[in-house]
């Protein structure tokens, strides 16, 4: 019974919600809304579980005199100060809810503590994007090289001075590729391969003017948009279709009780 009851509840709930997608008539039509309301009510109570876990974990750290104990102490103090502050506000001005967004307490806490902390964390992201991009764009192999070229073109197409800078940037990139292929060719003994490498290097040099100074100088924003709207979108949609199908398969596994990892 310990397994059968949750499985039966899952099966019935899952099936009802699938039916609700196709039947607008009551009681099916608003079933999703009702289930969501129930979920919100239940999840509201589970916050107590979270608080219990958080405080228990941090009290335990202090008790053990863990090296992280000072952080645990700050967390516990912050928790109780916030709670006490709210209760005092209720006692002093019972007509005002201290936790409503317009109360002095909430505004002070939100504007001077919460927002700056959040902004700080979010700001770190810009540095992490730079470091991750540096690693991803190292042209070690053909895929990374393509990624680098695409990223440069999209960046040039989307920044204000990109159109003016495009010919210079593209000239430099093409020259780097030309030098790379020429340098590689010097170490090759087989005549045919060597000639191919030299030819590729020459093609890069030859493309600098028509591509960089004629085409991209005029059309880099359109090209960046094309890159984002056609090849990028095609790949993205492929992944999204896979995710949708995988999601349906997973849901069917859950409804039929094949997938049971969520329960004991």
């Amino acid at each position: 019974m310990k397994k059968e009851v949750p499985l039966a509840i899952t099966f019935i709930s899952g099936l009802l919600l699938v039916l609700a997608l196709f039947i607008p008539h009551k009681p099916f039509g608003n079933l999703e809304e009702i289930f969501n309301d129930w979920f919100i009510i239940v999840s509201g109570f589970t916050l107590l579980l979270g608080i219990d876990s958080l405080l228990g974990y941090n009290f335990h750290k202090i008790k053990r005199k863990d090296k992280d104990a000072p952080f645990a102490l700050i967390l516990i103090l912050s928790f109780f100060i916030t709670l006490a502050w709210g209760i005092i506000e209720i006692l002093r001005t019972p007509e005002h809810n201290p936790f409503s967004p317009s109360s002095t307490f909430s505004l002070y806490f939100y504007n001077y503590i919460f927002i700056p902390l959040q902004s700080t964390m979010f700001a770190i992201l810009s540095f992490f994007i730079a470091s991750a991009a540096y690693r991803a764009f190292r042209a070690k192999e053909i895929n990374s090289a393509l990624l680098l070229v695409s990223a440069v073109l999209v960046m040039l197409g989307r920044v204000p001075l990109g159109q003016d800078a495009a010919p210079y940037v593209i000239s430099v990139i093409f020259l780097i590729f030309a030098v790379y292929f020429y340098a590689e060719s010097t170490g090759i003994t087989e005549t045919r391969t060597k000639l191919i490498y030299i030819l590729v290097a020459l093609i890069f040099v030859a493309l600098i003017y028509p591509l960089g100074w004629v085409y991209f100088k005029k059309h880099i924003p359109e090209f960046a948009d094309w890159l984002m709207n056609i090849p990028q979108m095609a790949g993205k949609r492929g992944i999204m279709i896979g995710i949708a199908l995988g999601g349906i398969a997973m849901s069917i596994r859950i409804i039929l009780g094949i997938e049971r990892t969520y329960m004991k």
């Binding site: 992490f128 991803a136 992944i239 999204m240 896979g242 995710i243 995988g246 999601g247 596994r253 997938e259």
Partner: peptide, 18 residues
């Protein structure tokens, strides 16, 4: 993909349990 050693892309994650 840029920052981690291995990435389960989309549906691969759903296939994980199987």
């Amino acid at each position: 993909i840029a920052s981690t050693d291995y990435t389960l892309i989309g549906e691969e994650m759903y296939a994980a349990s199987a």
